[in-house]
Amino acid sequence: MSEQVPEIEFEESGSKGRYLYRADGAEAEMTFSKAGEKLIIIDHTGVPDAFRGQGVGLRLVTRAVEDARAAGKKIMPLCPFANAQFRRHPEWADVLKG
């Protein structure tokens, strides 16, 4: 029997939003602000110790990249973690705000 991996959730309210990962009573999040119609600014990624080393932070950023790509948006990763992920993933250059 295979384990179900929880989906990344998306919440949006006005000019702010966040991506969430919830499992076993813990919650990881990546927050962002919208700057106009075509730019999102990732400002924070928080991953509790319970999820460390499991790729949860990367999954949060990857979901934002996929969503931005699908919507024709750009991302400005001000969060140090998200910024580091963009440096490690040159294939995301199409959504990186230069």
Rank of each mutant, 00 (worst) to 15 (best):
M1A: 14
M1N: 10
M1V: 09
S2N: 10
S2P: 12
S2T: 11
E3P: 07
Q4F: 07
Q4A: 15
V5D: 11
P6S: 11
P6W: 03
E7D: 15
I8Q: 09
I8A: 05
F10H: 14
F10L: 10
E11C: 02
E12K: 11
S13E: 03
S13A: 04
S13G: 04
S15F: 09
K16N: 11
K16W: 13
G17V: 04
R18M: 13
R18N: 12
Y19N: 10
Y19V: 08
L20W: 05
L20H: 06
R22T: 09
A23V: 02
G25W: 08
A26T: 04
A26V: 06
A26M: 08
E27A: 07
A28D: 05
A28Q: 01
E29C: 04
M30F: 01
M30P: 00
M30A: 00
T31D: 05
T31R: 08
T31S: 13
F32W: 07
F32D: 01
S33F: 10
A35M: 12
A35W: 11
G36M: 07
K38M: 12
L39K: 12
L39D: 12
I40M: 08
I41L: 13
I42F: 11
I42M: 15
D43H: 13
H44R: 14
D49Q: 13
A50F: 03
G55Q: 02
G57C: 10
L58H: 04
R59Q: 13
R59G: 06
R59N: 04
V61F: 01
V61Q: 00
A64C: 11
A64S: 12
D67M: 00
D67I: 00
A68S: 15
A68T: 03
A68P: 10
R69L: 01
R69D: 01
A70T: 08
A70S: 15
A70H: 05
G72A: 14
K73F: 05
K74E: 15
K74Y: 15
K74P: 13
I75H: 11
I75Y: 06
M76K: 08
M76R: 15
P80D: 10
A84G: 04
A84Q: 07
Q85Y: 06
Q85H: 02
F86P: 03
R87W: 00
R87N: 00
R87G: 00
P90K: 05
P90C: 03
P90D: 08
W92Y: 13
D94Q: 02
V95I: 14
L96Q: 15
L96P: 12
L96H: 09
K97A: 15
K97I: 05
K97L: 10
G98I: 05
